[in-house]
Design a protein around this nucleic acid. Sequence first.
DNA 1: AGTTAGGGCGTCTAGACAGCATGTC
DNA 2: CTAGACGCCCTAACT
Length: 810
Amino acid sequence: MNPASIPGLPSGISEQLADDGIEELYPPQAEAVDAGLTTGESIVASVPTASGKTLIAELAMLSAIERGGKALYIVPLRALASEKKSEFEKWEKHGFSVGVSTGSYESSGEWLATRDIIVATSEKVDSLLRNNAPWIADLSCVVADEVHLVDDRHRGPTLEVTLAKLRTVNPGLQTVALSATVGNASEVADWLDATLVQSDWRPIELRTGVHYGSAINFDDGSQTALPTGSHDRQTEAIVDDTLSDGGSTLVFVNSRRNAESAAKRQAGVTKRHLTDSERSSLSELADAIRDVSDAETSDTLARVVEKGAAFHHAGLAAEHRSIVEDAFRDRLLKVIAATPTLAAGVNTPSRRVIIRDWRRYDGEYGGMKPLAVLEIHQMCGRAGRPGLDPYGEAVLLAKSADEMDELFERYIWAEPEAVQSKLAAEPALRTHVLATIASGFATTKEGLLEFLDGTLYATQTDAGGEFGRLEQVTDSVLAYLDVNEFIERDGDSLSATPIGHTVSRLYLDPMSAAEIIDGLRSFEEGATTAVRRSKPTPPDGELETAFSTASDLRETDQQETGNADDQETIDRPTPLGLYHLVSRTPDMYQLYLKSGDKSTYTELCYERESEFLGQVPSEFEDVRFEEWLSALKTARLLEDWALEVDEDRITDRYGVGPGDIRGKVETAQWLLGAAEELAGTLELGSNIAVREAKKRIEYGVRDELLDLAGVRGIGRKRARRLYEAGVESRTDLRDAEKGVILGALRGRRKTAETILENVGRENPSMADVREIEPSVRSAVAPDTSDVTDEESESTSQTNSGGQASLGDFE
DNA sequence: AGTTAGGGCGTCTAGACAGCATGTC
DNA sequence: CTAGACGCCCTAACT
C-alpha cells in the first residue's frame, strides 16, 4: 500500500509521507489501515519495537483530527513525551499543533485546549480526568503507547483505569493501543473493542543467539565463530568483534555497580578503536559530563567516555543520560553497559545487543529471579539500527552447554508472557476508587463496580468468575477511605468529603494523605498542649487518644530543655520532621538500609526524637521500626541537601547517584506541596513551616539563601558564594559593586551578565569591570557561622569533620 | 623486594509517575 | 527453602 491510497487523511499528508521517502507502508501498517485505522476503527497493534508503530499512531491521529476533534498520545515516561513531541512537530507545517503535558512540563489546561495533538503520561491524563479538563470531551482518538505495561504492578492500573475512563466519558472514542508482542494480545483487543493487528515483521533482520565457548549459536541454526581470544570475558570479546566490523554494542547487566565496572572493562577495548577526531570529541563530551555534577559517578563516567564507553542507569543525572544516549546514537560512543532503564527508555538502537545477566535480584522472590521473556525480547529489540545496520544481533551469554540450552528454551524459542491486570491490588484500588468517587464517575458501590467492569481486569476475570475478588478488595478499600474520612457513606450512596476531593486532586495515595494529616495533626496537638493550650482541641476524640503518647513525649522534652527558644522550635515543625513525614509515605521510594545503617539511624532517631511528627514506633516491639529508619535515612538525605552539603558528599554518604538525589528532592517537593495544601484545607497552623521546608528542598539551600537562589541562573553554589561575598539578596544584587559580584562568580562575565539581567539590574554589562577577589568573609564556612540552633546540632559534623553525633559515616 | 594470581569472605542488589502557581523594578 | 557478581584482603607463587 502506498501513502496516496490511505483513506481519510487530511490533504497534504500523503504527499508529505511520499516526500519523506515512504513509498510503501510496512506490512503491519498496511494491515492496520485495512482494518480501518484511518476511518475511526479501534486497533491494537502488537508488533516488535522499531517496526513503524509511530506512523500507525500518526495516521490514526491525523485522520481523527480531520474528522473533527483532537488526539491524545499516552506515553509511559516523561522522557518519551518530549521525544514524541518533537517527532510529531513535523506535522505543524500542515497546521497540526502539538502540546505536551507532564508533571514537570509546564502547560496549563486552557493552553492544551488549543492543541490538536496532546502528548502526556498516563498519570497526567488520570490527573487531568480527575480535575475535569474540559477538552477531554473533544477527544476523538487516543493512542496508548507500550500498552503491555498494564501488567506493571505499580503503574499498570493507572493506565488501565485511565483508558477505561476516557472510553466511558467519550463512547465514540477511537482507541489505538501499541504493544510489544505479548502472549494475549487478543485479550487486550477484546477489552478495548479493537481489531487486533499482530505481526513479527521487522524492517531489518534480527538474529538472536547464545554465545558459549568460541561461537555465537543463532536461532536459525547458524554459527558465528567468536573465540574469547585474548579477552578473559565473553562480553569484551564480542564488543571487540563488533567494533572491528564498525558496529556498536549495548550490554544489559543486572545492577548499577555491574554496569559501571563492565563499562570500565569495555573502555579498555574501545580505546583501541578510536580515531584522533573521535578522541577529541569524546574528551569534550567528558568535560560536559563533569560539568553536570561533581559527584564521583560523574567523574567515573567521564573517564570511561573519554575512551569511547559508557554506563547508563537511574543513578545518573538526566543530563548525563541524554548526553550518553545522544553520543551513542551519533556513533561516538561505541558501547553502553546499561541496566534496564535503557530498554524501556528513549530509542537507542545498536548493531549488537548483549544480554549478560538474565537473572536479577528480587527480595520478594528471595534470590535471583529470571527476567520475563517480554523483558528480554524488549532488550533484543534494541538490536539493529534501521538504515544504518544491515542486520541486528542479540546475544545472550552462557557459561555452560546446559545454560545455553536453557536460554534457548526459556527465551529464544519462548512466547512472551500474557499481560495480567494488577488492578485488584489494594494500593492501586485505594487511589482509583477515591478518584472515581471524587470525580463523580460513581456514586454508589454498584456504580463503582459497573465502572470497573470496563477495565482489563474485568475482561480477564469474566470468564473465570473471579470478579468477586475485586468486589472484596473494593469493600475493604471503601472501609479504609471511610475511616479516614475521605468519603462518606449514606445508605448506598458514596460521596467524597472536601478533604477526599483535595487528596484526589493532589494525586496523592490516600494512605500518604492519611499519614501526612495524622502527622500534622499530632504536631498540632503536641504544640497546643505543650506551648499554649490556647487553640481549641479538634473535636476528634479518636485522634486525641491515638496521639496522646506523642503529646506526652513532646511535653517531657519541653520541660527538660525549657527555655524560650525551644518553645519556638516546638511551635513549628522542623524541616527534618517534615522531611521524615513525607519520606514515610507510600509515595516516596525509600532508601535501602545498608549494614551499619541500622545502628547509625537508631541513634539518630533517639537524638532527634522530639522533631518527629507522630508516634515513633518502638525499636523492640514494632516491626515498622526498620521502615521508619529507612524513611529517616531518606529524610536525612533531604536535610543534608537543604543544608547545602556537597552533592558528592551526599552521594557517598547515602550510597546513591546524582540522579537519585534529584529524584528524591523532586518527590519531596511534590509531597510537601501537597502537605502544605492539606494543612491549609484542614486549617492546621504548620503550613508556613511546610512551605519553608519545601522552598529549601527546591533550591537545596539554607534559609538565608532563599531569596538569591530564586533568581534564574543562580543555584545553591552561586548563591552561597555571592552571599559570602556580601551580596545577600536580590536588592544587593542590583546595588552591589559589579566587581564584587564578578569575583564571587569567579570571573565568569557572561554568567554575571545573565544573572544581573534576570534580576533586573539597570545596566547588566560587565564590560570593563575589574574582578574583586572575595575577601576574609568567604573564609567563614557556612555552617559554622550563621546557623540556627536547631540546625547546628545536627550539622556540626558536616563540614568541620569533628566528632559526629551521627557516627561513622565516612 | 616487589608483583601478581587466586581464594575466601563480606556486601549488596532495577526502575521513576504525580500538584500548584509564578516571578522583576 | 532459594543467588551471584564484585571488591577487598590475604597469601602463595613468581620475576
